[in-house]
Amino acid sequence: MKGKKDIIIAGGIIGLLSVLLVKLGNPANMGFCIACFIRDIAGGIGLHRAPIVQYIRPEVIGLVLGAFIISMKNKEFQSRGGSSPFTRFILGIAVMIGALMFLGCPLRMVLRLAGGDLNAILGIAGFVVGIFVGVFFLNKGFNLKRSYNLPKFEGYLFPIVNVGLFVLLLSGFSMLLFSEEGPGSMHAPIWISLIVGLIVGALSQKTRLCMVGGTRDMIMFKDNYLLSGFLSILVFAFIGNLILGYFNPGFANQPVAHTDGLWNFLGMVLVGWGSVLLGGCPLRQLILAGEGNTDSAVTVMGSLVGAAICHNFGLASSPKGTTTNGQVAVIICFLLVLVISLVNSEMLVKQNNLKKVNNN
Rank of each mutant, 00 (worst) to 15 (best):
L288W: 05
I219M: 06
I340Q: 09
K356P: 05
S18K: 04
R108I: 04
L138Y: 09
I192L: 15
K145P: 00
G98E: 04
Q78R: 15
F127P: 00
F102H: 08
L20Q: 03
A120N: 09
L157P: 00
L209S: 06
L111E: 12
L111G: 02
G184L: 13
V19S: 00
K222L: 06
I38Q: 01
L266N: 05
F173K: 13
S171E: 06
K350L: 13
T324D: 14
L65G: 02
G116D: 03
G155Q: 02
G31K: 00
K4V: 07
I192H: 10
A307D: 04
R49T: 05
K152G: 08
L169I: 03
C333V: 02
V135E: 08
G134S: 02
F230C: 05
K23I: 11
R108K: 13
G130H: 03
S18P: 06
S147A: 15
G92Q: 01
A289M: 04
G66L: 09
G182A: 12
G182P: 04
L157W: 03
L286M: 13
A237T: 07
F238E: 00
G250F: 13
K73R: 15
H311D: 10
S193V: 14
N119F: 10
P255Y: 12
L335I: 14
N359T: 08
D223L: 01
M109Y: 00
Y156I: 12
V163H: 05
L65R: 05
F89I: 05
L198W: 10
R112C: 08
M72E: 12
L354N: 15
E291I: 06
V163M: 09
L336H: 13
F77G: 11
I131E: 00
R108E: 09
P58G: 04
T207K: 01
I61K: 00
I52Y: 15
